[in-house]
Design a protein around this nucleic acid. Structure first.
Lengths: 197, 197
DNA sequence: ATGGGCATGTAACGAGTTACATGATTTT
DNA sequence: AAAATCATGTAACTCGTTACATGCCCAT
């Protein structure tokens, strides 16, 4: 597939394309493998795509001329491919960042879903789901703190998001704990768990 | 397609099937249209499926004998279809609720994503994205409060989730406000926005 | 020498979306 | 009379996932 000619209207790419493009907008030359690792760090506030998807997006971006590829031949296995964002890619990314309307977040919260259908479950099941979730959320918090430490002062905006994430998980922990407490009360005496503070 | 015979291992259905099944597990006979409206209330913590998806799931569930259908003939348009959960459906739902491992939540937060790539955007753009988000989050809070009022005391578990949701949005509002403040500081003087309290 | 990280890829699949079509009934 | 709501459905599409395959290089 030949690259698109310059000067045409910005192709509207799937969200994941822009994620990859954004990761490359920091200016570094990266492999698909590298990109996957970076994308993993988005998991705290944006789901990270499957490995195979990254490679698909890179091929797509390349077909649009938004990234360029440098191959290093390997013996007895596929070439190693390094990707770098092109000026056109940077322009497309900026246009997306500035012009594209920002959709509200979507959340898929299986724990809350189980709780919603609590009338069909034994209370211990709900308690255990909540407890596991608490554990997971606490782990996320420490992971985020580690990430922030690794990021250092070089990436102020990612750091801002990571800080947001820390607050997010702290709130989730508080809410889950409040729910666990509320679950101990018999349903009719159950008080609305208020937002603390 | 003929319904599956009883006694076989629980078919593993997509998540949305269980959402529909769960909605029917309250015992009421509902139309696809009704279900869609109910499913909308899940949007606060679980994305709600497209309308066409609900109908697809209902056909799927029926083909597995997990719901039964009652049709009311209409003149000059498709039959009106009422659905009710079957004992097999209730069993399948309970099995899912009790046995299926509970996955951690996934979040897709376009606002945070934009902020992450803030190095390519003008500060006003980031501020305006955050401000719109704040407005949206506040609207969610009032919507949730209305929902809780409408739910009354009949649905204790959904109410518990709604209370969780209120805390969630309150936290998001606080975090977005903190980020907005942090954005006003020059990057080098920028303090980590701490969790208040 | 065994396992884990690096690194790229293919194939099959399906869930879910968007857009469209139709038309009755109720509300304004 | 118009608009919103009720109500069901089809068709085309694609994003994204899971599972698999290959093989190098490095550490223990």
């Amino acid at each position: 597939m030949s690259p698109d000619q310059p000067g045409q209207s910005p192709p509207d790419l799937p969200a994941t394309s822009y994620v990859v493009l954004g990761l490359l907008s920091f200016g570094r030359e990266l492999t698909g493998y590298d990109l996957r690792k970076w994308a993993m760090n988005l998991r705290f506030f944006y789901w990270s795509p499957a490995q195979s998807q990254i490679y698909t997006e890179l091929r797509r971006l390349r077909s649009h001329g938004l990234v360029c590829e440098r191959t290093e031949p390997q013996r007895r296995r596929p070439d190693k491919r390094y990707y770098r964002i092109t000026p056109a890619g940077l322009a497309a990314f900026d246009a997306w960042l500035i012009e594209e309307p920002v959709a509200p977040p979507t959340l898929k919260h299986p724990v809350a879903l189980r709780l919603f259908f609590g009338h069909r479950a034994a209370p211990e099941r709900l308690r255990s789901a909540l407890t596991s979730y608490l554990e997971w959320a606490r782990a996320q918090t420490t992971d985020l703190a580690e990430l922030r430490a690794a990021l250092g002062a070089d990436f102020p905006y990612p750091d801002l998001v990571a800080a947001w994430g820390e607050q997010h998980y702290a709130a989730e922990i508080a809410a889950a704990e409040a729910t666990l407490t509320a679950l101990d009360q018999p349903p009719d005496h159950r008080a609305t768990p208020d937002t603390p503070g």
